[in-house]
Design a binder for these strands. Sequence first.
RNA 1: GGCCCCAUCGUCUAGCGGUUAGGACAUCGGCCUCUCACGCCGGUAACGCGGGUUCGAUUCCCGCUGGGGUCGCCA
Length: 484
Amino acid sequence: MAPRVRFAPSPSGYLHIGGARTALFNWLWARRQGGTFVLRIEDTDQERSSVESVRAILDALRWLGLDWDEGPEAGGSHGPYFQSERRARYREVADAMVEAGTAYRCYATKEELEQARAELKARDPKAQFVYPGWWRDRRDWPDGKPWVYRFKTPRTGATDFDDLVFGRVSTPNDAQQDFVLMRSDGFPLYNFSCVIDDHDMGITLVARGRDHIGNTPQQVLLYEALGWPAPQLAHLPMMLSAKGEKLSKRHAAVSVSEYRDRGYTAMGVLNYLARFGWSHGDQEIFARDELVAAFDWASVNRADGKFDEKKFADVAFEHLKQPRLTSDAEYVERVRPFLAARGLDADEPTLCAALPLIRERARTLADAAHHLDFYFREPPELDPAAAKVLTPQSAELLEGLAAALTAVEPWEGAAIDEAIRAWVEARGVSLKDVAQPARVSLSGRTASPALHDVMAVLGRARALARLRHGATLAREAAAARAPG
RNA sequence: GGCCCCAUCGUCUAGCGGUUAGGACAUCGGCCUCUCACGCCGGUAACGCGGGUUCGAUUCCCGCUGGGGUCGCCA
């Protein structure tokens, strides 16, 4: 049977890089198996949820290309996909559980709980408060007072489940307290709504971060109490910071949108995330369809990992470098916003001609825009460090070179290169002596692609004009330096 | 602290009883070279410790140590 999987973020911020990995693994499995990827918004915490967050998460998922078959804006036959719109259903199940004796109304107030907590703390600072079940067996419900629903957790025995990644996990039931199912304001708590929705939405496999493995026994207990079959379970090892702590803003960029804004491509991000906790032999680099074809739960690792920015950058770079992974058309489309941000209006022919020179240099799209900059500025912006290269002696060389290249045919890299070398030899100078002044004239920088490649991209007219302009600058520099 | 989980180079990982313990990133040399980059060649670098099981353990079992997660009217 084709699996139904889901990603269920709570809209209390941006899409976290770890959340993106969870979404990716679910998505991969759905696509691999021809199953259904459901997106559900867990907005039962009114305090923390916001529509802006929903928007941000949806946008980030769309940018990553993790399209959902059912969920917000997609619809589907198992909606609504916002938990805040499913409250009647939760209440219905909770009442049924009270009737069945698997849950109970608890009228203990927050204040009473706080007091009990405080008293325990006073007696034994190290002790952990456990709700003692004051209302576990009472039916003398006071009129007009708010209550919460609590689960009547079995006091003995153990709860087991088989995890696709971790194997069999067993937890003693006495480690569990009578946890709250629904708050007094009528909103459900995570474990409760999660179980009901996964059941009602026909979810067959739940894959989520390992930080959820601890409340899985509670959810399994709920499935048992409700007489529902539990879905398959798969927990993913955690993505930790380089220091081994829980990943947060302090350690690295943690929001998917931040990576987008920095100029990484979606597949660069996805490829790194996919290889984090999952492997496929020695293969490091994957196109999207290769990922879909190769993904499996058996190859998911159990050990937590540390996020490595260097490795991430390299994987992302590989995607920009290889036309197989990022086509020319896609590259051009993606880099345009970054060029625009520099105030550049790049014409298509020049951009396409420069692209091969950029691929092996640009580590991000933002970086690509930097490398592309001088092709689209007339004259190119002159780096302070580069200006020093335009010495008085170089003026004549630059003019000589420009003159030597006026008749080169065809105006192509190889021919230009040949002409440069021929001229250098005839002139009895070293290429090294000419190269840097020429480079600075052409690009305004001390580092650039090969001279002949740059000139080929610029075209004869602009290339020669820049060389001559460089000569002018060199003379001006000489004049400026001359005393009086 | 209770409960749960984990453990191969600095990092991500391959390995599923017998390997010179492999790859990638990073790092260090070198080559290429008009600069930068790419590329290429090479080096340093790992099975946490102690018991078992076995002819033989990185691999299977137990303990220890270390690390992580989780113990809310958050998710």
